[in-house]
Design a protein around this nucleic acid. Sequence first.
DNA 1: CCCTAAACGAGACGGTACGTCCGGTCTTAAT
DNA 2: ATTAAGACCGGACGTACCGTCTCGTTTAGGG
Lengths: 196, 196, 196, 196
Amino acid sequence: MPNEESRRPHTGRRRNEEARRAILDAAVELIGRDEGPVTIDTIAAAAGVGKQTIYRWWPSKGAVLLEAMAERATADVPVTDTGSLAGDLDAFLLATFRSAGTGRTAPLLRMVMAEAQRDEQVAEVMRDFIAKRRAALRGVLERAGGRGEIRADADLDLMVDQAFGVLWYRILIGHAPLGENEARELGRSLVIQSRP
Amino acid sequence: MPNEESRRPHTGRRRNEEARRAILDAAVELIGRDEGPVTIDTIAAAAGVGKQTIYRWWPSKGAVLLEAMAERATADVPVTDTGSLAGDLDAFLLATFRSAGTGRTAPLLRMVMAEAQRDEQVAEVMRDFIAKRRAALRGVLERAGGRGEIRADADLDLMVDQAFGVLWYRILIGHAPLGENEARELGRSLVIQSRP
Amino acid sequence: MPNEESRRPHTGRRRNEEARRAILDAAVELIGRDEGPVTIDTIAAAAGVGKQTIYRWWPSKGAVLLEAMAERATADVPVTDTGSLAGDLDAFLLATFRSAGTGRTAPLLRMVMAEAQRDEQVAEVMRDFIAKRRAALRGVLERAGGRGEIRADADLDLMVDQAFGVLWYRILIGHAPLGENEARELGRSLVIQSRP
Amino acid sequence: MPNEESRRPHTGRRRNEEARRAILDAAVELIGRDEGPVTIDTIAAAAGVGKQTIYRWWPSKGAVLLEAMAERATADVPVTDTGSLAGDLDAFLLATFRSAGTGRTAPLLRMVMAEAQRDEQVAEVMRDFIAKRRAALRGVLERAGGRGEIRADADLDLMVDQAFGVLWYRILIGHAPLGENEARELGRSLVIQSRP
DNA sequence: CCCTAAACGAGACGGTACGTCCGGTCTTAAT
DNA sequence: ATTAAGACCGGACGTACCGTCTCGTTTAGGG
């Protein structure tokens, strides 16, 4: 690790961006295809990369998956302001469900969540990631509160967890779909329960 | 495999119920104590049992944990009828949170859920278990509907998933507590959103 | 598998010669000490090596022991030419008995022979090894035949098998010693029976 | 092992002798057929017998095989007196080779010898058995000595071990046949080397 | 234009857990 | 009381992954 002064700016070969991409893509691809176990070895082989190249940049398999997941999530779910709680929720939840419910992403999320249960390091980064997503949704609710759309004694954190809870619960168990209708219905139920 | 007539009733030694108990208890105990990894070997050793005795009756570690989990859940969460949606929900959610949020049970649930993401056999039994718990809560809501306490266009399945979603989401991420206050607040929000 | 041109010379870490030595030595040591069972696990532990490192290079425990045995045998029994059958036999048998009858080697030979009875792969390599040893002794006899020291109708293969038969029989049963006197007496009996 | 008097003729279910035969036959049969491993379980199953019935009468698998082997050996090799060393040796060795070289017996002998290398109890009984066979052959030689057919300084024990050594060596390695010609040639070589 | 340090693909390494097999003991109902 | 069936404890097997450690090669600065 370079020190803060960076006295010797750099010598030697730089990180290969292609390898990074190949690793993340191979990981997602393997999880999505669901053929056999997804291990560091299979990821490395699928990416045409040595194992050490993975361990040089990530501490564990969970970290790789986590980065792949985070990459997709931040790209897909920008927060928009439509002027009404109903509109904002709809936009947020539709984008979120579309991103998370997708064929390739859902298995990835399942894997990351499973990994976080075994690996405390992954769990920690996961909590950070989750905190950001929750803050985004809570921001939507707080803005609506500023507009007087939410009853004073509403538990915003609980509402946030109801939204993400439904999402994760259905992803992990797979007993119900995660389509646009479900996103809208969920938005509606949150609007109703928060009315002053 | 014995046929439905059970023509050949049984020969040979019977299953040792003490061993079964020791295995399930050891598994829960080890997960709860959180000292080192919980493996089939450590469970067998802690239960004073040969590994084969575990594999004779369960196909995998996940199946053992699942059975231990199911045992506790059915014992702890009977459905009661208080006459009102608010009362019924309170009773159900308080019992559920108390059971699931307990020191020993929460790590067990996390482990089982993680296992279900890797092992399709576990996932299948998990889905059965989850379906029963959801049916119980849905029963509470339907009874309230019969009393006219619920608006006609409410999505009962979504409400059920909001409740269990919050529960699992908080267990798996661990960002918020799962105490009596949270149970009550959750019940209240469900009552509000379902009012006609 | 490298072709004859060796187009791709080699990539990746090379076989660790120290590990190989440690494994073979540990195996012989454990058999010699006769404390508890000699298993792949105990060999690996004694050699400070992972089990997989053993299985990467040998197909079975028998193969490990066989290699250890072959190593010792070729080192210890060079063929010498004294000019007379009696002298050559004496030299060969003394060296052979000294090598095979040694404290550490005899238990090794017993183990290998036992293993060869269960494992056809070991048996095959064993037959190769045995064939070489038999050829060496037969060479001694043929050289004597060239000098006219052996009757025409002598069955050289039978004589060879008498020599090695006595050796193995006594090693396996342990009813008689395998010292210098026995080697000399055996040599004498072979000389006598082969006289023209 | 049932005593010779059968003092307590019967209580409870009676099948002992049949079971004993079935076990010994099944063991030999399984070893001879060479299909899959020969374990206590497979022997019990093939004999239509419970495992406990085997362990009631024999201390280990090796003991079963040993008894099967001993049964055949004593039946097949009576010592005869033809009046000459050459004749006696021929008779003894032909009978021995015929018995040991047989399709079903040779694999049995290999198995027993292998077992004796691992199990000291089997080794002990094996040494007894071997001692008897050696004594029988030594008796033949001593009788010839009494007739003046053997030189004074011949090492009778060595000659005995040469004979049995060839036999076992070829059985265990399988590099040469064990037919009538080999028996006769072996007898001839022993006669030659013992001539006064 | 070479030198040197880092990153790379390959793959062997020490280690842990897996799920299976087998040996020898114990328990059950039937005979 | 003995049997066949079969569950039990213990322990070795051979495999799969993990995360680390060499190898020899490739690549990008700095001299």
